[in-house]
């Protein structure tokens, strides 16, 4: 507890030092913390909720699927925010490189090349284009059992319920951010339904993702 409060004191200290350095121009006070209010949802909704690992300057948001038991094979979305106030944060990717713009929640698991055990799906992508964050995790939906000249039949990947964290994203406070509400706009969200084999057009479905409110203080 003590350590935490010490850390919180640092931005204040930095601000004071900044003033004593002789900057006489009056400025609006910079925002020092992000607060996020989770959205109100129904059991069939997808939602972006605050992850407990969040700090005042790095807000981690969890994509959580419906709690009604529906199963999926992957999900992705495009989010827009005000990148003059906050920027998208990074995570280690599944090989350990700290370059991804998402963290894998571990819900969607795939079959490894041998069809023997579950692994993190290799089809993970995240990146930014201007003020947009684009992110998705998908099973390789080569989901049919296969068996050729040798060996025993091998099952494909199983669709998964998504009531826990599917993936994480992060927003980080810019040093120059000012207090106020920051828009979080979900431009597009799609998921691969469970029954791809019987969906005639093999298309993704639009998913309703509820987003909360981000305030800078």
């Amino acid at each position: 507890m003590k350590r935490l409060s010490l850390l919180l004191a640092f931005p204040v200290l930095a601000l004071v030092l900044g003033c004593t350095a002789g900057n006489s121009t009056p400025q609006a006070p910079a925002a020092q913390a992000m607060t996020y209010t989770d959205p109100v949802t129904t059991p069939s909704d997808w939602k972006l909720v605050k992850d407990p690992s969040s700090t005042p300057t790095r807000l981690v948001l969890d994509l959580v699927g419906p709690s009604d038991g529906t199963r999926y094979r992957g999900a992705g979305f495009t989010l827009r925010t005000d990148t003059t106030q906050v920027h998208y944060g990074r995570f280690p990717d599944y090989l350990g490189n700290p370059t991804a713009y998402h963290g894998d929640g571990g819900v969607f698991l795939d079959r490894d090349a041998t069809g023997s055990w579950d692994v993190a799906p290799r089809l993970q992508a995240s990146g930014i284009k201007g003020d947009r964050l684009m992110v998705g995790i998908f099973q390789d939906t080569d989901d049919q059992a296969w068996s050729l000249a040798w060996g025993s039949p091998i099952d494909g990947a199983k669709a998964r319920t998504c009531s826990t964290v599917v993936l994480r994203i992060a927003l980080e406070l810019d040093a120059s951010a000012h207090p106020g509400t920051v828009a979080l706009e979900l431009l597009k969200a799609r998921a691969i339904p469970e029954n791809v084999g019987t969906v005639v057009d093999r298309k993704m479905v639009a998913i309703p993702v509820k987003v909360g409110v981000l305030d800078l203080k």
Binding site: G76, M134, D140, R190
Partner: peptide, 14 residues
Amino acid sequence: DACDLGALALANGG
């Protein structure tokens, strides 16, 4: 965008 990866995954192997 990243959703295109899902669309591509759907086509893989089928």
